[in-house]
Amino acid sequence: MRTRSGWWVAGALAVLALSMVAGLLGGAADISPWQVVLQAADWLPYVSVDSGLAPVEQGLLFELRLPRVLVAAVVGGLLAMAGAGYQGVFRNPLADPYLLGAAAGAGLSATVVIVLLPASAAGVPVAAFVGAVGGVFLAYVLGNTAGRAGGTATLVLAGVAVTSFLTAIQTFIQQFKVEELQRIYSWILGDVGGGWDQFWLVLPYAAVSAVLLLAHGRVLDVLSVGDEEATSLGLRAARVRLAVLLAASLATAAAVAVSGLIGFVGIVIPHVARRLAGGSYRIVLPLSLIGGAAFLVLADLLARTVIAPAELPIGVVTMFVGAPFFVGVLRMTRRSAT
């Protein structure tokens, strides 16, 4: 069992490495994949290799492509892993990282900043981060005051209420500022081209939430027998749920802050992981992290190249490509209902 998990992780890492090389190549015809690999090695600390690339090409790779690939990888990994965490906490395969109002909260506060400070681009990520955290917090407080402390059903309902309420406000505001509609929409549809700044911005949150979530794999497996039985096994279910929700929401907020509301990754990738490698969160969480990263790097590659030199919004690509991909995986691994 454990060695099999190891193979899955190794395989996923290989796929991720390949997609990152593809992402760096990005359709430019005059650079060979091998040169990209050499160049990537050269960027590593204490390693110096000659890739044979001209300084202009090196600059293009380093200043434009590399941060883009890295942001896509981090965002994809965070969203997929957060999705897996939410599914574990709610014991519901349809849960996604936006379930508790993270998306609506981020959408609202990003819209407010875009409308009030049309000139500033720097404020949007911070606002989105705060909004996402705020949305989840609101849903959590509401859910816990309305229902039995720690129960999941009221929590989901509170998430639905918070989402529709905040979305209503957001829609209302954007109708007043039609001239900003384009910017608001392109933010919502997602973008990972923010450069190194965005990468450094997201990295600390990504690291913290990834470590926290990965550490909770076993406990989430225990939680999968339900609150009552988990308690009889000596686990404090409500406390586990809170810890995982915190970590997953932090991951979601960080991802949303630098990339907008990219859909589909958070729900599909954990399912693919589960289909391929089995139901244990100990393997689903790391596979989601790696698989989500690879998926979003490839999605961004498509977004940049399909109608080059123009770009498709990445959120459109994830849904357009992701849906048939998902159906394909479901068919390939068909077995008794999960």
Binding site: M1, D221, V222, S224, V225, G226, E229, A230, L233, G234, L235, R274, G278, G279, S280, S336, A337, T338
Partner: peptide
């Protein structure tokens, strides 16, 4: 009892070691 359908018998029995 609620049994997570995808879990193996060994992993399920191991849950008993949680405490």
């Amino acid at each position: 009892p609620s049994l997570p359908p995808d879990m193996t018998v060994l992993d399920y029995a191991l849950l008993g070691r949680t405490p």
